[in-house]
Design a protein around this nucleic acid. Structure first.
Length: 374
RNA sequence: GGUGCUGUAGUUAAGUUGGUUAUAACGCCGGCCUGUCACGCCGGAGGCCGCGGGUUCGAGUCCCGUCAGCACCG
């Protein structure tokens, strides 16, 4: 039996809603995973993450491998126990770091040699190491080791890189030892080229993985390209498996991607932007550091029921940011993540209700993409 | 009362043997962030160089006076 057990409850066009049962709990989808790279969703307690409604979080195999080391975490009882989180965990492999840390990498068929910015040490990540790390961590879902490449990239570069990602995926599969508890997802690459995306999706669909991801997006391309690429890819992935869009995105990107067949998402935006003062609300985007909020007694979002909105004024939150008080980061992160979880909940309801409801939500969410005024 | 030190952006400071548009940090104002090297990054505004004279082609810089703060001596 697969560690990722999928039940689809309703569909509306390509969008679908249901529940995926994982080793550490059941996750309704479409779902958004808060990002906790280093074994912590920055500024959030595990119980806070639960409270705002997230059942599944994302962590990172590469970064935990560099520090404190996967073997140490295994000795501490695995990542769940180590970080005090009993919900589900998906780990990214380090494929994104091949892109984001490219100035410190050398790529070969064997794998990727990283010079860690943290300690200057050289380490080689291979598909085998990548699986070993994620199985040691004891996560619910492991991502295959891929190469996330830059945009734009030539056809020749994309073709070679994608072929290697496929070979690495097969090596990941062969290296598995905990098939009952840690699922493995394959990642579709292919750059922004339709034929490559279709071919790669079809090719890895035959490998019978526990789920599939669309990778290589949100690397600086325009939104239209991102959505176009998603639309090319999802029809060629197995309908009875989860489809994960990696690294996306803004609320409006998420709705558009769900409509194109995506089930789960992760993105640093709600957490990182919160720490930098940017807030998502149903009345537009707020930069809490702006002077205009200095004496604003209202809450962040008049339509939000999160703890931050129920208890604190914009004036106070701005003060916390201007004073660089740590509580500001927590309160804004909490709000943004709550906002995202509410969005996902609305999306699930809308899909069950049908296309009209989903279209209405789409219009509403796109209206959030504006600065707050008045 | 005397001597010395210090007065430069909102704040703290740099400023060569006098030489283009006086520099930085912090603060202030604004923008950015898509599988987190990220409580981060980028940009902007802001100066009668205490005040008044003088020397000089040219003074934040040298000279005289004066005011303020600090230290020490009477």
């Amino acid at each position: 039996m697969s560690p990722v057990d999928l039940t689809i409850h309703a569909q509306s066009g390509a969008a679908r809603t249901g529940v995926m049962k994982l080793t550490h709990g059941s996750v309704p989808f479409p779902a958004f995973m808060p990002v906790g790279t280093y074994g912590t969703v920055k500024a959030m307690l595990p119980r806070d993450i639960k409270e705002i409604g997230a059942e599944l979080i994302l962590s990172n195999a590469y970064h935990l491998w560099v520090r404190p080391g996967h073997k140490l975490i295994e000795r501490m009882g695995g990542l769940h126990s180590f970080m005090g989180w009993d919900g589900a965990i998906l780990t990214d492999s380090g494929g994104y770091q091949v892109f984001s840390l490219n100035q410190f990498t050398q790529i070969s068929e064997e794998g990727v040699r990283f010079r860690a910015p943290l300690d200057g040490q050289y380490r080689t990540m291979t598909p085998e190491v990548c699986v070993e790390i994620q199985e040691s961590l004891g996560v619910d879902i492991a991502m295959a080791f891929d190469e996330c490449i830059e945009w734009p990239a030539t056809r020749d570069r994309v073709a070679q890189s994608t072929a290697r990602t496929t070979r690495w995926l097969k090596r990941c599969q062969a290296a598995r030892t905990k098939m009952e508890t840690t699922g493995l997802f394959g990642i579709v690459q292919g750059g922004m080229y339709q034929d490559f995306r279709v071919e790669h999706a079809q090719e890895i669909s035959e490998l019978d993985l526990d789920g599939y991801a669309v990778g290589g997006l949100s690397v600086g391309e325009p939104t239209e390209k991102l959505l176009e690429t998603v639309a090319w890819t999802t029809p060629h992935l197995p309908a009875d498996k989860i489809c994960y869009l990696m690294g996306v995105g803004y609320p409006w990107d998420i709705v558009e991607a769900v409509i194109r067949g995506i089930d789960i998402f992760d993105c640093v935006i709600p957490t990182r932007n919160a720490r930098n003062g940017k807030v998502f609300t149903s009345v537009g985007i707020i930069n809490i550091k702006n002077a205009r909020y200095a004496e604003d007694e209202s809450g962040l979002d008049p339509n939000c029921s999160c703890l931050t909105c129920q208890n604190h004024s914009r004036a106070y939150l701005r003060h916390l940011f201007v004073s660089q008080e740590i509580l500001g980061a927590h309160l804004l992160t909490r709000h943004n993540l709550h906002f995202y979880q509410q969005l996902m909940s609305k999306i699930r309801v809308a899909i069950s209700e049908g296309s009209e409801s989903l279209e209405k939500l789409r219009t509403e969410v796109n209206s959030w993409n504006r600065p707050y005024t008045t």
